[in-house]
Nucleic acid binder design. Structure first.
Length: 171
DNA sequence: CGGCTTTGACCCGCGC
DNA sequence: GCGCGGGTCAAAGCCG
């Protein structure tokens, strides 16, 4: 049940949304009714909707060696922000940067610094809408949040509460 | 000195 | 096989 430590629910927690302007679904998707949550305007309904959306992404699979399909823990979401790196409470080490085709902004690659924890994330700014930052998480943390600022303790507390409420699924 | 970025090289899968 | 695009490595350098 390491999933307790980190899941899409964490990203979509009400307090996370209060800190960052989160946009669901991502604007490249076909869904006609994006949820654009302004900081300080996040409700449980927003969190619930976003969570439902993330669940659909969650079904993404990838082929492993031998052709076996495995479930990918890969969650993409967008925030509207001047700052590229949103503070999610985990410690990240940058390990690469690449320019991608048809995009004037480079993509940055980060790894979670916790020993043995293999979670990665990619951060990329939109070339069309420059104020939008797209963050991709891959993997599940094997440990709780490391950074513990006062404000973040609150987020963590809410996060744990919502996990207890929603009966978390492992894997 | 330790932890982190930077940055070019390397690697790998895919389409031609 | 080759080149391209994208992901990762790792040496060097920066900074507290």
């Amino acid at each position: 049940m390491h999933d307790l430590c980190y899941s899409p629910r964490f990203i979509t927690s009400k307090s996370m949304m209060e800190r960052h302007e989160v946009i669901f679904p991502i604007s490249s998707s076909k869904d006609a009714s994006p949820i654009d949550v302004k900081p300080g305007n996040a409700s449980n309904i927003h969190a619930k909707k976003a969570e439902l959306f993330l669940k659909t992404i969650r079904k993404e699979t990838s082929k492993q060696k031998g052709g076996k399909e495995i479930m990918k823990h890969r969650y993409v979401f967008q925030t509207r922000s001047q700052i590229d790196i949103l503070d999610d409470g985990f410690r990240w080490r940058k390990y690469g940067e690449k320019s991608v085709k048809n995009n004037k902004f480079p993509r940055s690659y980060y790894k979670c610094t916790y020993r043995g924890c293999n979670v990665k994330k990619q951060i990329q700014r939109h070339s069309k809408e420059e104020q939008i930052v797209e963050t991709t998480y891959e993997g599940v943390h094997i440990h709780p949040v490391e950074k513990s600022t006062e404000s973040f303790d609150q987020i963590l507390r809410n996060f744990i509460t919502s996990n207890q409420l929603y009966n978390v699924t492992a894997m």
